[in-house]
Design a protein around this nucleic acid. Sequence first.
DNA 1: GCCCCGAACCATAGGTGTCT
DNA 2: AGACACCTATGGTTCGGGGC
Length: 350
Amino acid sequence: MLHRLPGLGILSLRIAFDPLESAMGYAARLAAFHILRDYVFENMAMPAGSHVLGEDLGERRLHTCASLARECDVDRRTLRSLLEAKGLIPADTAEEALHVFDAHLGREIAESMRRLVPVNSLPKRLRCTRPLAEQLMEERILSPIVTELTWARGRTKKSVDEKEIKELIHRLFVNAKPVGSVPDGMVDLAKAAMKANAPAGEIVHLILAGYLKNVVRMIDGQGFDAIYLDPAEAKAIVSEVMIGLSPMEVFGRLRIPVASGWELVQMGILPSHKILTNDGKHVIHRFPLDAAERFLSEFTTEVHIGAALELGVDGLKQEMKAAGAKPMLLKTEIGARIFRRSELPERFRL
DNA sequence: GCCCCGAACCATAGGTGTCT
DNA sequence: AGACACCTATGGTTCGGGGC
């Protein structure tokens, strides 16, 4: 259990092994050193260039939370909650120094932490309205670096990597013709959304997917502010392409969190109709009008049962536990407890 | 004139920045 | 590493513009 003793220095290793060393033959000693050295390099967070038992460690292989925070100059508490969320260190451990993890993986996370844009500064960064920024997140056109499913502390989990934002603006601009002045009849995103009677996020989906041809961007404009489009075309294409329900509408009817909804979609339990672009780079998820009803005929959630029985979450949990009702999917897995109706006692099939 | 949705505003809990 | 102040995320509410 050497790795559980972070204070154990090379000196104490010498004291421990010198008597052993002199009692062994040369070959045996060499073999023992190799084993021990490998063990140290593999299990202890030694900095690059560490000299252990006659050999230098080239690049650092392992980090602890504290050493990584120091190396990358990021806040150790925030880094720790991110590492927990990403599963590199166990959550809720008092002794973080005892846990080591792959230095390369850790560094990637710490570097992304330096690029984070919190969601409430998204509107400014993207030059768009707050509702649109929210929709971009909900529709997963932009994604939080860690979803709420991991129950990580902190709000960094909801932040977006600057890399993704740059990519989004790039993809947006690729689909818009650069102009010096707004052509007659073209309007900004909010206006177009209003006229099309659709959320602005859906219009953005259509632009990114290349369905809208009459889209321009002001050459001196930035972000979504620069985008103008033909509202008539937008309205026509919305009603043609955006058939069925949006992810948000379905998740809302199922009364589950957004992240849980996407998890169900990815697992194929909540089937979506995928609208793919020619290059396959952009995907729009839509759902049949009866998607929620169909799902609820086979499955149900705690919220639905609780509401029908007029029980609070705590009370319901106790009753269900007593009745031996087991969820098919756990809260820790997808962020909501999902039950299969057929596996529930009759009185809970609500 | 009514209704809907986008946008702005506000309050608050708790995570994060920063200092020592 | 601990403490304090600040700032962010979030949900609710209200207001205004446009479509039906």
